[in-house]
Nucleic acid binder design. Structure first.
Lengths: 194, 194
DNA sequence: CCACAATGATGTCAACGACAACATCGTGGG
DNA sequence: CCCACGATGTTGTCGTTGACATCATTGTGG
């Protein structure tokens, strides 16, 4: 039996294939035509769902933020212990995502997004809402100094992003990541005593 | 008068044009043929100096590390004041480089370098030697806890890299960078008292 | 002074993104 | 019931790119 003329849910299939290729081969080797081949459609078909390559990348970034949000929330929900332990669990989850899907993360923060900045920004805010709440909790408990939670979050976020970059750049081995995250979090709290 | 058949120093001209294009348009729009056009040479000429595109990118990364090293050293040499002030000046210079040449920096740490990893790694070590010495000085002075200087440097480096990423991703405005660096450095030292 | 290495020019090929024209499917109004 | 139309997929084409092969020019050392 021939494959039906209509794929069924080509859009989702393309996004899935793209995410896999992105993880295994990086962004340079991501080609619309190759994705079409993998999914078994003609080279012109993706155009119905993504007017151009950038649209595909934007969609990838958006779905990436959704998954990131889920993973952060799951990590925090599963964490037990004091504030530092909960913060460390969340930070570790972020770094795991950032290193496991490095190319995708780069896409998410690429800034090169065409006119869709609105959707993406909302998706990003949803993803980081968990962390934001966690920081507010820390400030109430006195583990973190009071002040603009966004400001504190920025520095913490920057540190985690940087630790992930250490791995991506091949500067540290994967098995040192958890240790680095733990030290960074501990140090951060030590420098933030209320 | 026609341009002479031989360009004279095509390699350097290509690197210069590439660095400019990289800064103004990003890595996606960096094409060997376009560079050849800008320099006034045929599309096949660059091949004599860079066997493929990746070779050009590797060379760019290497020269980038050299310039980064110079800028870090210059910033540190020009800095006056106590250890924190000197560290802040160096960190600020790094973030300035990382945000002014974001695409180039991404290239430098891309990890995708073909077999030339050796040369690049040496260039990177030379560039960061200044920071390494500065950290050792801090440990002698007691401003930083004793311990593996590389370990301390990694966390500091990660934080600066992350702050630069905040700017690159459009999360913070350029005029907040210095302030963020200053706070990060201060916080780092507060969490590292010997 | 000339043969040769270094450097640049020209031509070609396959892959890609963008686009247009055409084909197929399913669904809802008449 | 059916068929017109919109949604979706196909095929063909164009311009650009990176890689490669072959040829042209230049300067230099034996």
């Amino acid at each position: 039996m021939q494959r039906p003329y209509h794929h069924g849910n080509l859009r989702a299939a393309l996004l899935a294939a793209a995410e896999r290729t992105l993880r295994e081969q990086g962004m340079g080797d991501l080609s619309l035509r190759e994705l079409a081949r993998q999914v078994g459609v003609s080279h012109g078909a993706p155009r119905r769902h993504f007017p151009d390559r950038q649209a595909l990348l934007d969609a990838l970034a958006e779905s990436g933020f959704e998954r990131l949000g889920e993973e952060l929330r799951a990590a925090l929900d599963a964490a037990a212990g004091d504030f530092e332990a909960r913060l460390r669990a969340t930070a570790t989850a972020y770094v795991r995502f950032a290193t496991h899907d490095a190319a995708l993360l780069e896409l998410m923060f690429a800034g090169k997004h065409s006119a869709q900045a609105g959707r993406l920004h909302e998706a990003a805010e949803r993803a980081f809402a968990v962390v934001f709440e966690l920081i507010c909790e820390g400030q109430r408990d006195g583990a973190l100094e009071a002040g603009d939670p966004e400001r504190v979050g920025l520095l913490l976020f920057a540190t985690m992003q940087g630790i992930a970059a250490l791995r991506t750049g091949g500067i540290v081995a994967a098995d040192r990541l958890d240790e680095l995250v733990a030290e960074a979090v501990a140090r951060f709290l030590r420098g933030s005593g209320a």
